[in-house]
Design a protein around this nucleic acid. Structure first.
Length: 580
DNA sequence: GCCGTTTTCGGCCCGACTGTTTTCAGTCG
């Protein structure tokens, strides 16, 4: 499938046109087309073959022709020409905070600078400040922006961003004039990573809140500060923005600052179509300016004729149209979760005894847990020998006599380099649940790797494929798996795919969850806890599920212990039937 | 470049803050 690839080409065209100074609506058209293509639930080649490209939203004659050219000839002439015309370095400069297309153009035209390095040198020499339209301050901002762009190439993990946001919110909420405060933006939408942190507060006296905010310990630099809005850089050069609004605008402002940008643009179009304008203050009549809604998000959606759209779905991927015909998916919620399927104990590399895990699970309101320690080959994580595994089984049996929470006897079994599992079948058979996972030998060729996973999935005792792509966000790339094939195989063999909730794993990612859901594959959530506090990480896996539009019935963790056992024994029976 | 209940031209989402310039363009979200 080339959807993502093609979407990327159009985004590149959009950026190049920006630098060129093209009409901004033309640029927006390319961006829109890229969004449409990226969020398609099928291969765009299908539309190309059937001649229906122009029926897609935001795709007309021009862009359809470019898609056709790419699919038939493997290139887009317009993009090739733009690349020749505009030095690659100028594109990179767009990533520098404080530097936009107009200034880039100016710098390029007046000073002939076309690389980041060249820009850095000119900035240090003070050549930028001499340009008309720029001054000392702009030059200094660009210099700082360059520093940030080079240091902060990555984004923050959601968990880090949430903690930072909470630290700031705690102080803001203590201000007596603060009625409410929360994090919006990508934090509220549950994204995997966060670029900058957007905070929103409600108050009748915004200046006071802003004043509190810019003085918080941990603010390293205030980059802008007005009566209702301020931006600061906090420790680690993380940008934090705060906006303060009046109570009557709380909902409209929440919508506005939660985004996504694309969702907002689409909502404003809806508003405009019904003679209204939507901004961060309210939904109001275009002519009279009369207030229609704004105090809560629900009110605004309702006045727009839409069902309430949960933040995780606000990406303009069709959710607005779904909301208009009452067809939004009913998303899984934290309260639906009855158990955590992936917990490590002191038997392997966990820090907690099984009884401790069960006690915490009880506090969390769970009915069951899966005690899944590492298998014998993973010596670095004190993987269990068969003998210790059997000892663990006895302990679980004994604990289950009195435990309020049913403890499943499980294991996270290594998928070895040849695709065999790390315990013999007669041992695997004993497990209540068997998770299989790759923990070593990541560097196989894609062919060998895919064969390895397929072979593992052929084992009738493999119930769950845990953290399927083995990625670590920002640290280790995902395995080069053909996820279409993996999800198809999971559907065929009734294998459950895990959504690992550890903050730097979040594996499967939402795109792959959607792929699995489309094929009817069951999913499971696991915190992969190695310490007690890790059990609270389930929320991050839940974010992925919700962002993928996942409902309650799609997830194993919403079932009772009895239902879960039934699902697993039924899948094993079928799998054994296949392999016999 | 796209689109059409103001339909083949002329619109296209909206506002805060900064910096450089004296009224607004650029950037950001």
């Amino acid at each position: 499938m080339k959807n993502k690839e093609i979407a990327g080409k159009f985004l590149e065209i959009a950026h190049l046109l920006e630098i060129k100074g093209e009409n901004s609506f033309k640029i927006r058209s390319y961006e829109k087309a890229a969004e449409t293509i990226e969020s398609l639930d099928h291969d765009i080649k299908d539309d190309y073959i059937s001649g229906n490209l122009e029926e897609l939203d935001g795709i007309g004659k021009g862009i359809a022709a470019k898609i056709s050219e790419y699919l038939s000839a493997g290139k887009i002439t317009k993009l090739e020409e733009l690349r020749k015309e505009i030095p690659r370095g100028l594109l990179e400069m767009l990533k520098v905070p404080g530097l936009g297309p107009a200034k880039i153009r100016l710098i390029h035209k007046e000073l002939g600078i076309k690389t980041m390095r060249g820009l850095d040198i000119a900035a240090r020499r003070g050549e930028l400040a001499a340009l008309s339209g720029l001054g000392e301050k702009s030059a200094a901002n660009i210099l700082r922006g360059l520093e940030i762009a080079s240091r902060l190439d990555g984004r923050l993990l959601m968990s880090t961003a949430e903690n930072m946001a909470d630290d700031f919110l705690e102080v803001i909420r203590k201000d007596k004039s603060c009625r409410a405060a929360l994090a919006c933006g990508s934090v509220r939408r549950g994204c995997e990573t966060v670029g900058d942190i957007d905070l929103l507060a409600v108050s009748e006296t915004p200046e006071k809140i802003i004043d509190t905010f810019v003085k918080i310990d941990g603010v390293e630099k205030v980059t802008s500060s007005g009566p209702t809005k301020a931006s600061v850089y906090s420790t680690g050069d993380v940008q934090i923005d705060l906006r303060v609004v009046a109570p009557a605008s709380f909902g409209a402002a929440m919508l506005y600052f939660t985004g996504s940008k694309e969702h907002n643009i689409a909502l404003r179009k809806c508003a405009s179509a019904m003679g209204c304008t939507l901004n961060e203050y309210a939904l109001s009549d275009q002519k009279s300016g009369e207030y229609r809604a704004g105090e809560t998000e629900k009110d605004v959606y309702k006045r727009l004729g839409l069902d309430y759209i949960p933040p995780e779905l606000r990406e303009n991927r069709g959710e607005i149209e779904q909301a208009s015909r009452h067809a939004l998916p009913s998303l899984i919620e934290a309260k639906d979760i009855k158990g955590d399927l992936h917990l490590h104990s002191v038997y392997s590399d966990g820090a907690v005894e099984i009884r401790g895990l069960a006690a915490r699970a009880s506090e969390l309101g769970y009915e069951w847990i899966g005690s899944c320690d590492h298998s014998m080959s993973l010596t670095i994580a004190r993987g269990l020998s068969v003998k210790n595994l059997m000892k663990k089984k006895k302990e679980i049996e004994s604990l289950n006599k009195t435990s309020r929470v049913r403890i499943l006897f499980g294991a996270e079994v290594d998928i070895l380099s040849d695709g065999s599992l790390d315990y013999p079948d007669e041992i695997l058979k004993e497990l209540d649940v068997c998770l299989g996972a790759v923990h070593a030998v990541f560097n196989q060729s894609p062919e060998v790797l895919n064969k390895r996973i397929m072979r593992a999935m052929d084992n009738p005792y493999l119930d769950v494929l845990a953290h399927p792509t083995a990625r670590l966000i920002g640290k280790r790339p995902p395995l080069a798996l053909d996820m279409e094939k993996v999800t198809a195989k999971a559907a065929e063999k009734n294998i459950i795919l895990e959504v690992n909730a550890f903050p730097d794993r979040r594996d499967l990612k939402e795109e792959h969850i959607r792929m699995a859901l489309a094929k009817g594959v069951m999913l499971s959530l696991g915190s992969d806890s190695h310490a007690l506090h890790h059990m609270d990480n389930m929320r991050y896996g839940l974010m992925n599920l919700r962002r993928a539009g996942c409902g309650k019935r799609d997830v194993l963790n919403t079932r009772t212990a009895a239902e879960l056992s039934k699902i697993i024994s039924s899948r094993r029976r079928k799998a054994n039937g296949y392999s016999a």
